[in-house]
Write a protein that binds this DNA or RNA. Structure first.
Lengths: 168, 168
DNA sequence: ATTATTTTTCAGAATATTTTGAAAGTTCGA
DNA sequence: TCGAACTTTCAAAATATTCTGAAAAATAAT
C-alpha cells in the first residue's frame, strides 16, 4: 500500500469512528488529517484534501481548537493561518476525556443531586429504589473519574518513554 | 419535587446524554425508564410512558438486549413479554464499554495493522512519522484496554459492597 | 484610506438518522 | 386448524444534523 493511500484510509476510518462516538465526521477527519501530516496545513490545504467547503473547514477547525487538540500556527511572511494537531496521543485522549466530562457528564451529575430531593414518605419503596439508582450512578461517576485521573498519571510514564526515544 | 417528575427528568436527560455519545435518544430513554422502574414493563407500558410508537419500542428494546443490559422476563399467565434492566451500574458500564470496544474500536485496530504495511524507502520521513502515529494509537488502545480490565476488577469490590448492603 | 486577502457567519440545501404505523409474521390457546 | 394476542419488519415520513457557498466582517499590505 502507498503512503497516501494509507493516510486516506486512516482519515476515512477515523471519521467513521468519530461518528459512532458522537463526534461529527468532518471534525474527526480534519483531526486525523492533521495527525498524520508532518507540516501545518492551511484552511485551503484542508479543504482540498478532504473535499469540503470553507465554512465547514472553519467551523470544525475552530471546534478542534476549543477542545485543545489543534493549534493555530503562523508562518513568517504568510498571511494565512496554519493548523497543527497535538501529536501525543495520550495528551489528545486526556484532553478529550476531560472535555467531554466537563461538557456532557458534569451537567447531568449536577442534575442528579437535585433529583434526589424528592417529596415522599420514608417508607416509599419506589422512591427508595430511585434514590439508590441515582446514588449508584454518582458513585460510578466518581470511581470512573478516579480511574481516569489514574490514567493521567500513567501519562507521565508514557511521556518519559517518548522522551527517551528522542535520544536514541 | 415529586417522584414521577424526578423520573421524568432523569429519563429526558439520560436521553440527551446518550445522544451526545452516539447512542440514540430513544434507546437511552428506554434504558433509563427501565433503570428506575421497580417492576418489568411491557412494550405497551414503554410506549405509553415515553409516547413512542410500537416499532420504535421494539427496535430499541431489542438493541438493548443485544447489548446485554436489558432482559426479557415472562410473567406466568401472561402472553406479553416484559422487560427489565440490569440494575447494577457497574455491570451496565462494563458491558457497554466492552461492547463498544468490540463493535467499534477493534475493527479499526485491525485496519491500523494493515496500514503500517507501506511501500516506502527506509529513509522516508513522512512514512516514518505516519507509522509512529499508528504505533502510538495502538499503544494507547492497549493501555486503555488494560485500564478497563483494571476497572473490571474494581467491579468485584463494588459488588462485594453491594452485597454487604443487603445484609445491613 | 483603499484594496486585496483571509476568516467568519449563517440561511438554506443536502444528507443522515430516527420514528411511525400498518402489514406481515409468529405464537399459543381453544 | 383457526383466530386472537402479540411481535417484528420496513417503506415512507418526520426530524435532526451537517454542509455549502456567498456575503459580511476582519485583517493586513500598499
Amino acid at each position: 500500500m502507498k503512503l497516501s493511500e494509507a493516510k486516506q484510509q486512516f482519515i476515512l476510518n477515523w471519521g467513521v469512528l468519530g461518528t459512532q462516538w458522537g463526534i461529527n465526521r468532518t471534525m474527526a477527519q480534519i483531526h486525523a488529517l492533521l495527525l498524520v501530516s508532518t507540516d501545518p496545513m492551511s484552511a485551503d490545504d484542508i479543504m482540498k484534501e478532504l473535499q469540503i467547503s470553507r465554512g465547514n473547514t472553519n467551523m470544525n477547525v475552530r471546534e478542534l481548537m476549543d477542545w485543545g487538540i489543534v493549534d493555530k500556527v503562523l508562518k513568517p511572511g504568510e498571511r494565512k493561518e496554519f493548523f497543527t494537531a497535538e501529536k501525543d496521543i495520550w495528551i489528545v485522549a486526556m484532553k478529550i476525556i476531560r472535555e467531554r466530562k466537563r461538557r456532557e457528564v458534569e451537567p447531568i451529575l449536577g442534575l442528579l443531586d437535585q433529583l434526589k430531593d424528592i417529596e415522599a414518605d420514608k417508607g416509599d419503596k419506589d422512591a427508595k429504589q430511585f434514590i439508590a439508582t441515582i446514588n449508584d450512578i454518582q458513585r460510578f461517576a466518581n470511581q470512573a473519574t478516579r480511574a481516569v485521573d489514574g490514567m493521567v498519571k500513567m501519562d507521565e510514564h508514557w511521556f518519559a518513554g517518548t522522551l527517551l526515544k528522542l535520544f536514541k
